[in-house]
Design a binder for these strands. Structure first.
Lengths: 228, 228
DNA sequence: CCGCTGCATTCTGTATGCAGCATTTTTCGT
DNA sequence: ACGAAAAATGCTGCATACAGAATGCAGCGG
C-alpha cells in the first residue's frame, strides 16, 4: 500500500487561502523524498508504468514531475529510454560542496548585515536544541536541525535566488549526508564549528562567520568522503 | 507559420550517433528563447491550447516543457490557473548578480588553477574578436561573445555544478541584458574590465582575476539598472 | 558452437478525451 | 438601474489511447 493517498498532505488547517495542490507537484516532493531516502537508488530507471501504478496515479502527472526533477538535477533524462536516478561521483559531491561553501560564505556576510536580534535568537534556539540532540545522541533530529540552521542563515541573507540555489544543492547532497555517519570526534568538531558560527552571527562579525562557514563546509567533505 | 518544424534542427549529418531529440526537450529550448527574446512577456499566461496550436504540438509535451522551465525559474506555476512568465523585480536582478559575482569569483580562482595555455589562448581569441565587435559597433555579436567568454572561464573551473548554476542565472538575466543598452562610456569601461580579466587569466593571477570579475559584475548592476 | 537477423514484447513519447475549477456573462430580484 | 446569484464558457489537470522506438528472444545461417 504505497498509494499517493498515504502521502502526509494534511488538509491545510488554519486560516488563509486553502491550499490547492496539484498532483504533479505532490509527486515532485514524493519522488524527491524517495530518491533522498534511497528507495530509488542511483542508476535505477524510473519505470513510468510500474511507478505510476505503485503510486496510484497515471503516467501524465508522473512524467511532468520527472521533468521537473530533471531540471533540478536529481534525475537524468535519456531520450527514448526514460529517466534514471542521477549518480553523483565523489568529484561531483566535492564540487557541489565547493560551490556551497562559496554561497554560504556570501550568505553569512549578508546575514550579519540584515539579521534582526529576533532572527539571531531564533537560530540560537535551534542551535541549542541541536546541541541537546548531540548530547542525547539523536542523530536524525540533529541532522534535521543542522540543515535547518544552515537554511535559516542563508534565509537571513534576504536573497531569494541564493536561498533557492542553496536549497537545490542541499537537496542533491542530502542523500549523501543521509548515509554519511561520521565518527564521534568529527561530530564533536562539527558541533564546535556550529557554536563558533552562532557566536559570530550574534556578534555580527561577518568576516568571522564567513570564515567559520567556509571551514565548516571544507570539513564537510572530509566527513562524507567515506560514503562515496 | 511558427510551427515547431521551422526550428533549426538540422538532420544531423556527419558521423557519430544520430541525435534523437524528444519534443519536450526541443520545446524547452524553444520556449526559453521566446521568453528571453521577449515574445512571451513577463506576467503573460502560457496558454496551453493556443501555444500548442501555434507551435504545432499537443498539450502533453508542452506541459512537460513548462514544468521543466518552472524548475529553472523562468515561469511560475499557479495551481488551476496554468503558468505565467515570471517577472523579475529590480531586487531580484540585483540578488542574482550578487550570487553570480560570488560564483564567478570562485570560478576565476579555479580557472587560474586548472586552465591550460591552449584554454587561455582560446579565450584570448574570443576576447580579441569581441573587441573587434566593440570597435565596429556590432552590439549583438559583442553581447554573444561577452557571454561566451564568461561561460568559458566558468567552464575552465572544471566544476560541473558551478557551470550549471552559472548558466541558469545567466539565462534568467539574459532577457534583462538583452534589453539593457548601456551608454558608450560604460561600454568602454566594460571592455576595459574584460581586457584586465584576460590579462589576469594569462598571468594565472587568481586574486586579481577574482577581483576584476567581482568588480565587473558589480558594475553590471549599474549597467542594467536602467532597464528595470 | 557462435553470430546475425527478424519478430514480439515492453516501454517511452505524443495525442486526445473528459471532469473540475476559474472567470465572465447573463439574468433575476430589489 | 444596480447588485448579486446563477449559468455558461474556457481553461487546466488528469486519465487513457495510440504510435514508434528499444530490448530481448528465437530461429536461422555460417
Amino acid at each position: 500500500m504505497d498509494d499517493i493517498s498515504s502521502l502526509g498532505q494534511p488538509g491545510d488547517s488554519g486560516p488563509g487561502p486553502i491550499r490547492r495542490t496539484a498532483l504533479h507537484d505532490t509527486l515532485v516532493t514524493r519522488l524527491r523524498d524517495m530518491i533522498i531516502e534511497g528507495r530509488l537508488e542511483p542508476g535505477m530507471r524510473l519505470h513510468e508504468g510500474q511507478l505510476g501504478e505503485q503510486l496510484g496515479v497515471s503516467r501524465t502527472p508522473l512524467r511532468e514531475a520527472i521533468k521537473y526533477l530533471a531540471s533540478e538535477g536529481l534525475v537524468e533524462l535519456v531520450p527514448s529510454r526514460g529517466a534514471v536516478v542521477k549518480r553523483f561521483s565523489g568529484k561531483d559531491v566535492q564540487d557541489m560542496l565547493t560551490v556551497l561553501r562559496s554561497l554560504e560564505e556570501l550568505a553569512g556576510r549578508l546575514a550579519c548585515q540584515f539579521a534582526t536580534d529576533a532572527d539571531v535568537a531564533r537560530i540560537r534556539a535551534m542551535h541549542d536544541r541541536m546541541v541537546e540532540c548531540y548530547q542525547t545522541g539523536d542523530r536524525l533530529e540533529y541532522y534535521k536541525l543542522n540543515q535547518a540552521i544552515h537554511t535559516a542563515i542563508v534565509g537571513l541573507s534576504g536573497n531569494t535566488p541564493l536561498v533557492e540555489i542553496q536549497a537545490m544543492l542541499q537537496t542533491r547532497l542530502k542523500r549523501i549526508r543521509f548515509i554519511g555517519h561520521e565518527g564521534p570526534e568529527k561530530w564533536a568538531a562539527a558541533v564546535s564549528e556550529h557554536e563558533e558560527m552562532i557566536a559570530a552571527l550574534e556578534a555580527r562579525d561577518k568576516d568571522r562567520l564567513a570564515e567559520v562557514l567556509g571551514r565548516h563546509l571544507s570539513n564537510a567533505w572530509e566527513r562524507v568522503r567515506g560514503a562515496l
